[in-house]
Design a protein around this nucleic acid. Structure first.
Lengths: 351, 351
DNA sequence: TTGAAAGCGCTAACAA
DNA sequence: TTGTTAGCGCTTTCAA
């Protein structure tokens, strides 16, 4: 076969065949080097690597996927605005950086339908594994997905034999806030819960577990009579509406525990509007310890979940499954910590 | 050929061949129906569609990509924490929803190296087109990418023959803030600029253009002598440090215009710490009109860019190129609007 | 209008 | 250890 002249059609991308002929080996050999597979002599390794470098060859991920893997991990991310998610993504990226895998994010939206669509799209693209952040699809659907492709679920309680799960212990987290407020002397501690009206939303979502944790902790502190849960949504508007309702009560709470920082911001707005001071007149706490909570003018007491750690663990668990090292499912529950700030203090003497 | 019994190996996913045999047509015919290609009779259309529905067939995107397209659009997103980006993503999704294309996000990080890595990864996966949000890679590299795959750049000024660009008119935007403050009576208006020390960062980034717009507007208002640009970073810490510096000046500004909301938050912190009131003692303005700016306790005057519109336009332009409908490059510049809030007011009488 | 057949770039099974 | 070869699921000529 004649040596190819340099004047090629120009547009063609270098393939494994180019590398093979340059290194005078078979394409199979190149493929083995690419995958660090067994059965290549050091000398051949060397030659192939040199050819790859000279040609600037990059394997075509989709073509690899036709027979083997795509080296792509799909991450379903429901809401880009949730300031907790970037930490998860960073944690995932941190773990994957040392591997050959690349994460791509699927913007899933907040409805079961849109999330299902993106999940399908990721499966259609033969992703090697899926990390699903707080998915709202029915459990059965989740398990069906997990039977198709290795899956790890983040932030949704309840275990399954089909997929691994990484969660923060939201019962403990809610307890941290209640204990903190009770220790400060509060008794009338209200809670704002996220109540999704969409049908089929599982009860294993963090919002439900946080509300349960709140109830348990109140009971533990002998405050069963003071339990006061306002159903609303984890959003600024939701927090605002719930706080307006709470502030209008004849016997209003001395502390409001919103199940998410973003809702706590809405509470702050309502409290300011009502002309009340924080924390002198009323204490406010959130959950998630997002960057907003740390902002000076906000300074919101919150619960910190180690998102980076959750993300990197999720990635680790996923790769174990992708590489077939483990078949049994794992539930990993991490401990949250309290981050007290200026939005909580002792209750007023005569509330 | 014998009819396949139902007891198949179970795991196999339905392929185009399954659909073809079910509909009693060739795989080529199915392929044509899938792509709405020319040359299929209505009757065959009908039969094939029925078979697809019955079998719940979904095309394998990666395999399609081997010959044709992957129907995947890659979106490079540098910083998930930037609250402006979700709007762009929504705009992109909005436009793509009506098409067969699916967007996947590549978490690009903020360094040229990490962004280049993800860009490569997206090209390796044969994405049909790329939308790059405020990329910090050198222009030459951007053009090389654009020659490989259709590309649209968002939020980076300067045009190119190789790619389309969608930008907000940051010169006008900065002018809106300066005019607003000058109309209120301010003269000593300082500006906080993002100065990236990484080498090779192009001068076409929004931060540079915003600073230019500030200078032009100050000059236009006859305030050339008052021009005061503090180099820092678009981050809370960056805004804080810059504000500390400005507040320490013997003749301190009566208004601080931070080039981004996130930096303005840092300014608010520093101002509060210094025991000054907003806006009575000092006015503060940001840029981007992020959700943080709208929060009650913050109420930051800002500049709104229509992110959804930018995103959907970028997607539209990209698909025009992907589908080969246009070869000449387009630069689309949108107009920002001022959103005045409580953080700006008349300057103190004796500053 | 329809279908047969040849790839796309790679991996895996197997033979040498 | 190395190479040959047969696909993976689809699209695209090109003939019928």
């Amino acid at each position: 076969m004649a040596v190819e002249p340099e004047a090629e059609p120009a547009a063609r991308r270098t393939t494994i065949a180019d590398v093979a002929s340059r290194a005078n080996v078979s394409t199979a050999a190149v493929s083995k080097v690419l995958r660090n597979a067994y059965g290549v002599s050091p000398a051949m390794q060397e030659r192939v690597r040199a050819a790859i470098a000279e040609l600037g060859y990059r394997p075509h991920a989709a073509a690899r996927g036709m027979r083997g893997q795509t080296y792509t991990i799909g991450v379903l991310i429901p809401d880009l605005r949730n300031p907790f998610f970037p930490e998860l993504i960073e944690g995932i990226g941190e773990h994957l950086a040392a591997t050959d895998y690349q994460a791509l994010l699927g913007p899933g939206g907040s409805t079961p339908e849109s999330q299902a669509r993106i999940t399908e799209a990721m499966i259609d693209r033969r992703m090697d594994g899926l990390i699903m952040i707080a998915p709202v699809v029915p459990r059965a659907q989740l398990e069906a997905t997990a039977r198709t492709v290795p899956t790890v679920v983040i932030g949704r309680h309840g275990r399954s034999a089909e997929f691994d799960a990484v969660v923060d212990d939201d019962v403990t987290g809610a307890g941290l806030i209640v204990d903190h407020l009770a220790d400060l002397g509060h008794r009338r501690i209200a809670h704002i819960e996220h109540r999704d009206t969409t049908r089929g939303i599982p009860t294993t979502m963090p919002q439900t577990v946080r509300a349960d944790g709140y109830r348990q902790a109140m009971a533990r502190r002998g405050l069963t009579d003071e339990i006061d849960v306002v159903p609303s949504t984890y959003s600024e508007a939701g927090g605002y509406a719930a706080a307006r309702e709470l502030l209008a009560r004849p016997r209003r709470p001395t502390a409001i525990f919103a199940g998410a920082d973003v809702a706590a911001i809405g509470v702050l707005n309502a409290v300011h509007e009502a002309g009340l001071r924080i924390p002198e007149d009323i204490s406010v706490a959130g959950y998630d310890n997002t960057s907003i909570a740390a902002m000076g003018p906000i300074s919101l007491t919150s619960v910190d979940q180690d998102g980076r750690l959750m993300g990197s663990n999720a990635a680790r668990l996923l790769l174990e499954r992708v590489e077939g090292k483990r078949r049994r499912s794992v539930l990993m529950s991490l401990s949250p910590t309290l981050v007290p700030r200026r939005s909580t203090g002792a209750p007023p003497v005569n509330p």
